[in-house]
Protein backbone atom coordinates (compact mmCIF):
# COMPACT_ATOMS: atom_id res chain seq x y z
CA UNK A 1 0.00 0.00 0.00
CA UNK A 2 1.30 3.44 -0.88
CA UNK A 3 1.14 6.42 1.42
CA UNK A 4 -2.00 8.51 1.86
CA UNK A 5 -2.22 10.97 -0.99
CA UNK A 6 -4.33 14.11 -1.26
CA UNK A 7 -7.57 14.54 -3.17
CA UNK A 8 -6.29 16.86 -5.87
CA UNK A 9 -3.17 15.19 -7.22
CA UNK A 10 -4.48 14.68 -10.71
CA UNK A 11 -1.17 13.45 -12.10
CA UNK A 12 -1.76 10.31 -10.01
CA UNK A 13 -4.82 9.49 -12.13
CA UNK A 14 -4.48 7.03 -14.99
CA UNK A 15 -6.98 8.67 -17.32
CA UNK A 16 -7.13 5.78 -19.75
CA UNK A 17 -8.13 3.51 -16.89
CA UNK A 18 -10.61 6.12 -15.71
CA UNK A 19 -12.32 6.38 -19.09
CA UNK A 20 -12.51 2.64 -19.57
CA UNK A 21 -14.03 2.30 -16.06
CA UNK A 22 -16.52 5.05 -16.91
CA UNK A 23 -17.42 3.28 -20.10
CA UNK A 24 -17.93 0.01 -18.20
CA UNK A 25 -20.25 1.70 -15.72
CA UNK A 26 -22.31 3.29 -18.50
CA UNK A 27 -22.40 0.01 -20.41
CA UNK A 28 -23.58 -1.99 -17.36
CA UNK A 29 -26.21 0.63 -16.59
CA UNK A 30 -27.56 0.96 -20.11
CA UNK A 31 -27.68 -2.76 -20.86
CA UNK A 32 -29.36 -3.57 -17.57
CA UNK A 33 -31.85 -0.68 -18.00
CA UNK A 34 -32.91 -1.97 -21.38
CA UNK A 35 -33.49 -5.48 -20.05
CA UNK A 36 -35.09 -4.19 -16.82
CA UNK A 37 -37.46 -1.95 -18.81
CA UNK A 38 -38.66 -4.87 -20.90
CA UNK A 39 -38.88 -7.37 -18.06
CA UNK A 40 -40.38 -4.85 -15.66
CA UNK A 41 -43.00 -3.95 -18.25
CA UNK A 42 -44.08 -7.57 -18.49
CA UNK A 43 -44.04 -8.07 -14.73
CA UNK A 44 -46.10 -4.91 -14.26
CA UNK A 45 -48.51 -5.95 -16.99
CA UNK A 46 -48.89 -9.39 -15.45
CA UNK A 47 -49.56 -7.88 -12.02
CA UNK A 48 -52.03 -5.38 -13.47
CA UNK A 49 -53.93 -7.83 -15.65
CA UNK A 50 -54.25 -10.41 -12.92
CA UNK A 51 -55.29 -8.00 -10.17
CA UNK A 52 -58.87 -7.90 -8.98
CA UNK A 53 -59.89 -11.11 -10.73
CA UNK A 54 -62.43 -13.53 -9.30
CA UNK A 55 -60.87 -16.48 -11.12
CA UNK A 56 -58.96 -18.76 -8.73
CA UNK A 57 -56.15 -19.59 -11.16
CA UNK A 58 -55.62 -15.92 -12.02
CA UNK A 59 -55.54 -15.10 -8.32
CA UNK A 60 -52.82 -17.70 -7.78
CA UNK A 61 -50.73 -16.27 -10.63
CA UNK A 62 -51.13 -12.78 -9.23
CA UNK A 63 -50.12 -13.99 -5.78
CA UNK A 64 -47.04 -15.82 -7.10
CA UNK A 65 -45.80 -12.89 -9.17
CA UNK A 66 -46.38 -10.51 -6.27
CA UNK A 67 -44.47 -12.84 -3.97
CA UNK A 68 -41.55 -13.05 -6.41
CA UNK A 69 -41.50 -9.27 -6.72
CA UNK A 70 -41.63 -8.68 -2.99
CA UNK A 71 -38.93 -11.21 -2.19
CA UNK A 72 -36.45 -9.92 -4.73
CA UNK A 73 -37.16 -6.32 -3.82
CA UNK A 74 -36.39 -7.09 -0.19
CA UNK A 75 -33.00 -8.74 -0.64
CA UNK A 76 -30.16 -6.24 -0.13
CA UNK A 77 -28.24 -5.95 -3.37
CA UNK A 78 -24.86 -6.96 -1.97
CA UNK A 79 -26.37 -10.20 -0.67
CA UNK A 80 -28.21 -10.79 -3.92
CA UNK A 81 -24.93 -10.70 -5.88
CA UNK A 82 -23.44 -13.38 -3.62
CA UNK A 83 -26.68 -15.39 -3.72
CA UNK A 84 -26.72 -15.31 -7.51
CA UNK A 85 -23.04 -16.24 -7.98
CA UNK A 86 -23.76 -19.83 -9.08
CA UNK A 87 -26.53 -18.63 -11.37
CA UNK A 88 -24.26 -15.96 -12.84
CA UNK A 89 -21.52 -18.48 -13.41
CA UNK A 90 -23.98 -20.73 -15.21
CA UNK A 91 -25.43 -18.00 -17.42
CA UNK A 92 -22.44 -15.79 -18.15
CA UNK A 93 -19.62 -18.25 -17.56
CA UNK A 94 -17.70 -15.94 -15.26
CA UNK A 95 -18.24 -14.01 -12.05
CA UNK A 96 -15.76 -11.24 -12.87
CA UNK A 97 -16.23 -8.24 -15.15
CA UNK A 98 -19.12 -6.02 -16.29
CA UNK A 99 -21.07 -8.82 -17.98
CA UNK A 100 -21.08 -10.82 -14.75
CA UNK A 101 -22.76 -7.88 -13.00
CA UNK A 102 -25.74 -7.98 -15.33
CA UNK A 103 -27.75 -10.91 -13.86
CA UNK A 104 -27.81 -9.51 -10.34
CA UNK A 105 -28.44 -5.95 -11.56
CA UNK A 106 -31.39 -7.13 -13.62
CA UNK A 107 -32.84 -9.49 -11.02
CA UNK A 108 -32.76 -6.78 -8.39
CA UNK A 109 -34.14 -3.94 -10.50
CA UNK A 110 -36.75 -5.67 -12.68
CA UNK A 111 -39.19 -6.49 -9.83
CA UNK A 112 -38.75 -2.96 -8.49
CA UNK A 113 -39.59 -1.47 -11.87
CA UNK A 114 -42.39 -4.02 -12.34
CA UNK A 115 -44.16 -2.56 -9.31
CA UNK A 116 -43.76 0.93 -10.71
CA UNK A 117 -45.24 -0.20 -14.02
CA UNK A 118 -48.20 -1.76 -12.24
CA UNK A 119 -48.79 1.47 -10.30
CA UNK A 120 -48.55 3.49 -13.50
CA UNK A 121 -51.22 1.31 -15.13
CA UNK A 122 -53.49 1.61 -12.12
CA UNK A 123 -53.28 5.39 -12.40
CA UNK A 124 -54.85 5.35 -15.85
CA UNK A 125 -58.39 6.70 -15.85
CA UNK A 126 -60.79 3.74 -15.60
CA UNK A 127 -63.18 5.56 -17.91
CA UNK A 128 -60.67 5.52 -20.76
CA UNK A 129 -60.22 1.76 -20.44
CA UNK A 130 -63.98 1.36 -20.36
CA UNK A 131 -64.32 3.53 -23.46
CA UNK A 132 -61.83 1.35 -25.32
CA UNK A 133 -63.72 -1.71 -24.16
CA UNK A 134 -67.01 -0.19 -25.33
CA UNK A 135 -65.47 0.41 -28.76
CA UNK A 136 -64.72 -3.27 -29.06
CA UNK A 137 -60.95 -3.13 -28.48
CA UNK A 138 -59.21 -6.46 -27.90
CA UNK A 139 -57.04 -7.00 -24.85
CA UNK A 140 -53.93 -6.63 -27.01
CA UNK A 141 -55.22 -3.36 -28.49
CA UNK A 142 -55.95 -2.04 -25.02
CA UNK A 143 -52.39 -2.87 -23.93
CA UNK A 144 -50.68 -1.34 -26.94
CA UNK A 145 -53.01 1.57 -27.66
CA UNK A 146 -54.17 2.59 -24.20
CA UNK A 147 -52.11 1.22 -21.33
CA UNK A 148 -48.70 1.95 -22.83
CA UNK A 149 -49.22 5.44 -24.29
CA UNK A 150 -51.45 6.67 -21.46
CA UNK A 151 -48.94 5.68 -18.77
CA UNK A 152 -45.81 6.70 -20.68
CA UNK A 153 -44.77 9.66 -18.47
CA UNK A 154 -45.00 7.48 -15.36
CA UNK A 155 -43.14 4.66 -17.12
CA UNK A 156 -40.33 7.02 -18.12
CA UNK A 157 -39.99 8.68 -14.74
CA UNK A 158 -40.06 5.20 -13.20
CA UNK A 159 -37.26 3.95 -15.40
CA UNK A 160 -35.28 7.10 -14.57
CA UNK A 161 -35.52 6.38 -10.85
CA UNK A 162 -34.63 2.75 -11.50
CA UNK A 163 -31.67 3.75 -13.67
CA UNK A 164 -30.27 5.95 -10.94
CA UNK A 165 -30.45 3.24 -8.35
CA UNK A 166 -28.89 0.88 -10.91
CA UNK A 167 -25.91 3.22 -11.23
CA UNK A 168 -25.49 2.90 -7.48
CA UNK A 169 -25.73 -0.86 -7.76
CA UNK A 170 -23.08 -1.00 -10.51
CA UNK A 171 -20.66 0.72 -8.16
CA UNK A 172 -21.46 -1.83 -5.48
CA UNK A 173 -21.09 -4.69 -7.95
CA UNK A 174 -17.80 -3.11 -9.06
CA UNK A 175 -16.42 -3.26 -5.57
CA UNK A 176 -16.59 -7.04 -5.67
CA UNK A 177 -15.08 -7.43 -9.08
CA UNK A 178 -17.53 -6.34 -11.75
CA UNK A 179 -15.41 -3.52 -13.11
CA UNK A 180 -16.50 0.07 -13.67
CA UNK A 181 -16.01 3.15 -11.55
CA UNK A 182 -16.96 1.40 -8.32
CA UNK A 183 -14.25 -1.13 -8.93
CA UNK A 184 -11.70 1.55 -9.75
CA UNK A 185 -12.57 3.62 -6.69
CA UNK A 186 -12.21 0.57 -4.53
CA UNK A 187 -9.08 -0.94 -6.08
CA UNK A 188 -7.16 2.22 -6.93
CA UNK A 189 -8.72 4.69 -4.58
CA UNK A 190 -9.09 2.68 -1.42
CA UNK A 191 -6.67 -0.23 -1.67
CA UNK A 192 -3.89 1.95 -3.09
CA UNK A 193 -4.91 5.00 -1.09
CA UNK A 194 -5.16 7.11 -4.22
CA UNK A 195 -7.77 9.56 -2.98
CA UNK A 196 -7.78 11.57 -6.17
CA UNK A 197 -9.04 8.52 -8.08
CA UNK A 198 -11.82 8.12 -5.51
CA UNK A 199 -12.80 11.77 -5.92
CA UNK A 200 -12.71 11.70 -9.72
CA UNK A 201 -14.74 8.45 -9.81
CA UNK A 202 -17.29 10.00 -7.49
CA UNK A 203 -17.57 13.13 -9.60
CA UNK A 204 -18.04 11.08 -12.76
CA UNK A 205 -20.73 8.90 -11.13
CA UNK A 206 -22.55 12.01 -9.93
CA UNK A 207 -22.36 13.45 -13.45
CA UNK A 208 -23.75 10.23 -14.91
CA UNK A 209 -26.63 10.33 -12.41
CA UNK A 210 -27.32 13.96 -13.29
CA UNK A 211 -27.27 13.12 -16.97
CA UNK A 212 -29.76 10.30 -16.54
CA UNK A 213 -32.01 12.46 -14.37
CA UNK A 214 -31.90 15.26 -16.92
CA UNK A 215 -32.68 13.01 -19.85
CA UNK A 216 -35.47 11.28 -17.89
CA UNK A 217 -37.10 14.53 -16.78
CA UNK A 218 -36.86 15.96 -20.27
CA UNK A 219 -38.43 12.88 -21.87
CA UNK A 220 -41.19 12.76 -19.24
CA UNK A 221 -42.11 16.38 -19.90
CA UNK A 222 -41.94 15.83 -23.63
CA UNK A 223 -44.47 12.96 -23.69
CA UNK A 224 -46.82 14.33 -21.03
CA UNK A 225 -49.69 16.11 -22.77
CA UNK A 226 -51.98 16.24 -19.75
CA UNK A 227 -51.07 19.82 -18.89
CA UNK A 228 -50.93 22.67 -21.32
Amino acid sequence: MGGNTGYFEFNNVDWNQMWSATWETIWMTVVSIVVVAILGYFIGLLLFETSGSQNFLVKVINWLVALFVNVFRSIPFIILIVLLLPFTKQVVGTIIGPVAALPSLIVSAAPFYGRMVELAFHEIDRGVLEAADAMGASQWQIITKVLLPESLPALISGITVTAISLIGYTAMAGAIGAGGLGNLAYQEGFESSNNTVTLVSTVIIVLIVFAFQFIGDFATRKVDKRVV
Binding site: E130, G136, L152, K225, R226
Partner: peptide
Protein backbone atom coordinates in the same frame (compact mmCIF):
# COMPACT_ATOMS: atom_id res chain seq x y z
CA UNK B 1 -68.86 -11.16 -32.03
CA UNK B 2 -69.45 -8.73 -29.22
CA UNK B 3 -66.32 -6.78 -30.18
CA UNK B 4 -67.57 -6.54 -33.77
CA UNK B 5 -71.01 -5.43 -32.61
CA UNK B 6 -69.44 -2.81 -30.36
CA UNK B 7 -67.78 -1.22 -33.37
CA UNK B 8 -71.31 -0.39 -34.45
CA UNK B 9 -72.48 0.98 -31.10
CA UNK B 10 -71.02 4.37 -30.31
CA UNK B 11 -70.90 5.67 -26.75
CA UNK B 12 -70.26 9.05 -25.19
CA UNK B 13 -69.49 9.58 -21.54
CA UNK B 14 -70.01 12.10 -18.76
CA UNK B 15 -66.27 12.59 -18.34
CA UNK B 16 -65.53 12.28 -22.08
CA UNK B 17 -62.92 9.54 -21.52
CA UNK B 18 -60.60 10.82 -24.21
CA UNK B 19 -57.01 9.62 -24.46
CA UNK B 20 -54.91 12.54 -23.24
CA UNK B 21 -51.92 11.21 -25.17
CA UNK B 22 -53.67 11.63 -28.51
Amino acid sequence: GLRKKRHKIGMIFQHFNLLWSR
